[in-house]
């Protein structure tokens, strides 16, 4: 006959502690893995906008980024941007250049598409629409959240690539054609995958969708 041994109180406490530790460990592992857990979500349908025709919704892995475009500052640039957004060209395009807490850049329609990602040329691709001239004359405050068209080292080479600032960059005024500003969801962009050592990202995050509200 097997003699039953009763647990002492201290053994019970130890067991409970180990169970709680296990729950804590696996629970926190799950939390850490979910980079979007504490990011505030924005539903554009529940928000009111003065000019809904200028509102663009960028959906990325951690949620929506709501951008208000400003056609008064750089009309041709905003026109180009709207055309590309409405045609769905930006969907599944990589954030190929991400500098932690400085900026995120996407929009390489040639070499940055999810199904045709080309690490050798990413960042140099074009759209089928050709380049447009820089629009730099009107004042624009390049604060955190500003959205602008990217270009090569030469002016008048803007096409489809754009960047969003994660910190103020006053020297960008007069250098880049401004498109507008993020009005909700800047924190969502801080969760875009980056590499500490280089600006270009291997296995980058992608734009899920980019749409105009109206």
């Amino acid at each position: 006959m097997i003699k039953k041994i009763k647990q002492t109180i201290s053994e019970k406490i130890l067991l409970t502690f180990l169970i709680l530790l296990g729950i804590g460990f696996f629970g926190s592992y799950g939390l850490i893995k979910n980079k979007c857990l504490f990011v505030k979500k924005y539903d554009p349908q529940k928000l009111k906008f003065e000019k809904p025709e200028n509102i663009a919704i960028l959906n990325v892995p951690c949620g929506n980024v709501i951008i208000e475009l400003n056609p008064n500052v750089a009309p041709n640039s905003v026109k180009r941007f709207k055309i590309l957004i409405r045609s769905g060209e930006y969907n599944n395009v990589a954030f190929h250049r991400v500098i932690k807490n400085v900026l995120v850049q996407a929009g390489d329609l040639e070499f940055g598409k999810k199904d045709n990602l080309n690490y050798s040329y990413i960042g140099t691709g074009k759209s089928s629409l050709g380049t447009i001239d820089s629009e730099l004359d009107k004042p624009f405050d390049f604060k955190k959240g500003s959205v602008a068209l990217a270009r090569t080292s030469e002016k008048n080479t803007e096409d489809s690539q754009f960047f969003i600032l994660l910190k103020d960059a006053p020297l960008f005024e007069g250098e880049y054609s401004p498109l507008g500003k993020v009005i909700y969801g800047l924190d969502v962009l801080k969760k875009i995958k980056y590499n500490d050592k280089v600006e270009f990202v291997l296995r980058p995050d992608f734009i899920n969708s980019f749409k105009m509200l109206k």
Partner: peptide, 27 residues
């Protein structure tokens, strides 16, 4: 090769460098 090349080149991640290609500057 591409991964190695990317890994060994250091980033000069600041917005001033982005414009005038001189590192270690501030406004």
């Amino acid at each position: 090769t591409i991964i190695i090349l990317i890994s060994i080149s250091s980033t000069k991640a600041d917005t001033i460098y982005n414009i005038i290609k001189i590192p270690n500057l501030e406004i």
